[in-house]
């Protein structure tokens, strides 16, 4: 075991998957010789050769559609989109084809692909490099939408996503790529998909989040503890299909819920979680559901970026007012 970054964990997972299954191929822009713009695929070309690590022309519709075609032929393509803001042509392919192929052919053709892309703000990148639009993918039937929040979960969830028989959109919090290190055993053990991870036990309030906001949320839980408030932290990890059970069980225990996400508030995935809890757990709630989200604005350029991202202070405040409510 060694302490590695989330990025290195992704590389390890891809290498492991390629080792165990010759159908796994990597494709995308600059992924081969250059190892990807963030170096997530570094070393894979040297190890697995240019028939399995493919630099494509600069054409996102083609990358997405090609992956659908490859997957239908039994390969397991792992395609990288350089940034979420450039991945939207893939929505056409996922919505119209990737998520539908199994259903429309009644299981004759399937689509075991993974689309990886960095998501979120916080690295002072240029325009279009800071989007959090996971909800657009989470609305698509037939897909899985998976977001890791630590090196170990990046390794285990990416392995599970590549092995999954259905299409997976794997969204990588750019802000966490190199922000923390963790011991990760390269043991080929996948983590379960479709399951939330309870990262911290608590009894007063449930904080539900995913991706990069897990970092601020855990920090907020620490601050709350210093103030005598015990917060439970749930990392959703797989947005679609959603594990409502874990969230409901936690709310039943704490009676209070605050949902935190970086994406714009209106129509954000937090609304779906709130609706699920209102539908199935209303009577456990002792306070209104709180949401700490990105504003409904265009993610600003770096000068205002910090003011845009939901802060630890906003999370603490929302949790405190939930606890103070009753």
């Amino acid at each position: 075991m060694s302490e590695i970054t989330l990025l290195s964990a992704l590389t390890l997972a891809m290498a492991r998957a390629m080792e165990e299954d010759e159908n796994v191929v990597i494709l995308g822009q600059d992924v081969a010789v250059n190892g990807g713009v963030f170096r997530a695929t570094e070393g894979l070309l040297e190890r697995f050769g240019n028939e399995r690590v493919l630099d494509t022309p600069l054409a996102e519709t083609m990358i997405a559609g090609m992956a659908v075609g490859m997957a239908a032929e039994g390969l397991r393509p792992v395609a990288e989109f350089q940034f979420m803001g450039f991945s939207y042509p893939a929505i056409d392919q996922l919505l119209n084809h990737g998520g539908r192929l199994r259903n429309r052919s009644r299981g004759r053709l399937t689509c075991p692909l993974v689309f990886r892309t960095p998501m979120g703000a916080g690295i002072h990148a240029p325009e279009h490099h800071s989007d959090s639009t996971e909800v657009m993918f989470a609305h698509i039937p037939g897909l899985r939408v998976v977001i890791p929040s630590s090196p170990a979960r990046a390794y285990g969830l990416l392995l599970a996503s590549i092995r999954d028989p259905d299409p997976v959109v794997f969204l990588e919090p750019t802000r966490l790529y190199r922000a923390l290190r963790e011991d990760v055993a390269d043991d080929g053990e996948a983590l379960p998909l479709d399951t939330c991870f309870t990262l911290r036990q608590g009894s007063d309030v449930t904080l539900v989040t995913w991706g990069a906001m897990v970092k601020e949320t855990l920090a907020a839980a620490d601050s709350l503890e210093a103030d005598g408030i015990s917060a439970e932290v749930v990392d959703v990890a797989t947005l679609k299909p959603l594990d409502t059970e874990t969230i409901l069980a936690s709310v039943e225990k704490t009676g209070r819920l605050v949902i935190i996400h970086e994406a714009a508030k209106t129509g954000g995935f937090g609304g779906e979680i709130a609706a699920q809890v209102a539908e199935h757990g209303l009577l456990h709630l002792q306070a209104p559901i709180g949401r700490v989200c990105g504003y409904d604005v265009v993610p600003p350029l770096p000068k205002l970026e910090d003011a845009f991202l939901p802060s630890e202070a906003r999370i603490v405040e929302a949790a405190e007012s939930a606890v103070a409510f009753a």
Partner: peptide, 29 residues
């Protein structure tokens, strides 16, 4: 669309030209 004959042929493509990119994926495989 669960063709009994050509098992690997794609179902018809209604979204215009999308199957052109599938075809290059199939050919790549």
């Amino acid at each position: 669309s669960d063709f009994s004959g050509p098992r690997r042929d794609f179902p018809v493509c209604v979204t215009i030209a999308a199957h052109a990119v599938h075809a290059v994926g199939v050919a790549s495989a």
